[in-house]
């Protein structure tokens, strides 16, 4: 079972490292393939990406890719609501939370699909013009 967790982590990290939502993939991998309870899977995801994020942030900061001006305006309201939402999730049954998460995944997946297709068409056009 240890290896299944490591493999799930690698798959999530791989997508995360490529700049796509790795966590949104890691949670269903843990619940669907490893049978992990929804709340636990969510907690694992929140913690597991922290070390990788810190390293990535340091690299991005060195490359001057981080704009601090956005930080207080977005992160402060987000953190306050994030804590409140975590308490809200606590009171929900894991199965119901899992279903809600499923709908969230479908919406994100469709959005991601549209973005990927638009980017692909744009790339092809640019290549054609060259």
């Amino acid at each position: 079972m240890i290896f299944v967790y490591i493999i799930a982590g690698i798959a999530g990290g791989l997508i995360g490292g490529m700049g796509m939502g790795g966590g949104t993939l890691l949670i269903p991998l843990l619940t669907i393939f490893c049978g992990v309870e929804q709340h636990i899977a969510q907690a694992v995801n929140l913690i597991a990406f922290v070390p990788m994020s810190i390293v990535a942030i340091i690299i991005h900061a060195k490359n001057h890719l981080i704009k601090g001006a956005y930080f207080p305006w977005i992160a402060i309201p987000a953190t306050v609501v994030g804590i409140a939402a975590s308490f809200l999730a606590r009171n929900l049954d894991g199965k119901i939370l899992g279903k809600c998460f499923g709908f969230f995944l479908i919406a994100l997946g469709i959005y991601q699909l549209i973005c990927a297709i638009v980017a692909m068409v744009k790339n092809k056009k640019e290549k054609g013009e060259r």
Partner: peptide
């Protein structure tokens, strides 16, 4: 246990992905 092993995987996967 799950957090530790998944976390190790995430770091390895993250490097490969990057």
């Amino acid at each position: 246990r799950i957090t530790l092993f998944t976390g190790i995987g995430v770091i390895v996967g993250g490097i490969i992905g990057a």
